[in-house]
Write a protein that binds this DNA or RNA. Structure first.
Lengths: 140, 140
DNA sequence: ATGCTTGCAAATCCTTTGCATAGTC
DNA sequence: GACTATGCAAAGGATTTGCAAGCAT
């Protein structure tokens, strides 16, 4: 895939080698906007790379984290999920269907501003809103 | 302690028994504003209850979660931390000293409003701002 | 060629669970 | 007294690690 160029370059800037597994895992992680878990990415990638291991998926996700291409979201009682949307945003996470959607809203930036006002030097952000999404609420 | 009355009542409303351990653990968890981990609470409580077990601490924290008295915050590569501040707020979490402080700011409510606007029925909220606190920044 | 990466399996760490005993209501 | 909670040890589950063999550069 020719669109793998940016991934390959990003990996190489920090000295990481662009292996087929890393490219496939990165493609999956950076493309999937449903906040997948490592295991879900693993299952996706296995289609094209049947021999890939879950360990490699975890290792690659750590690399992507280091490259600031994904954020890891940990939850109580659940696997961690990975979000490739790196601009300030809200995660709307439905308690019923478990789906998560990213919403860009000025409220996100106001959170950053509020922290800055408190003389806090902001480097990262996580805004989760939990509840019931429109679709699930409808068929309550 | 006479101020344990509210804790005792809260436990009983849902049919939980007010044992000495639960009261001590609850007191610690609801009082400590540093977002302690289960182990830190355990260590605090051991002063007064040397025989308490970590398992009981975990179990009690789940009870407090069910009673909506604390929120559990999971992190990658770290133990979960517990926050008894249940109104909408920002967690400013210092990457250097690991301290976390709660900040009430209207930005928190704007996040809720933004979610509501997206037809999302809000039941919970977590806003983490990561960075370097004033104290740590000063001695950079 | 050199050295990073993979995949497997074993290890780790946090958290939960099972169960006999002790305590609450 | 009936039933829940405790404390211990063992289990569980997600994630990480060690290592020999396989690739990228």
């Amino acid at each position: 895939m020719d669109n793998d160029r940016p991934i390959i370059n990003a990996l190489r800037t920090k000295g990481y080698r662009a292996t087929a597994q890393r490219i496939a895992i990165s493609r999956s992680a950076l493309t999937n906007r449903a906040h997948p878990s490592a295991r879900q990415i693993y299952n996706e990638v296995r289609g094209a790379h049947p021999t890939v291991s879950l360990a490699t998926v975890y290792k690659t996700l750590q690399v992507l984290r280091e490259l600031n291409l994904v954020q890891e979201l940990s939850f109580p009682d659940e696997e961690a999920r990975f979000d490739p949307y790196m601009r300030p945003h809200l995660n709307l996470i439905c308690q019923r269907c478990r789906k998560a959607i990213d919403v860009e809203d000025k409220a996100a930036r106001e959170v950053v501003n509020a922290a800055s006002k408190a003389r806090f030097n902001v480097t990262g952000l996580r805004i989760d809103v939990y509840g019931i999404c429109q679709k699930c609420g409808r068929r309550a």
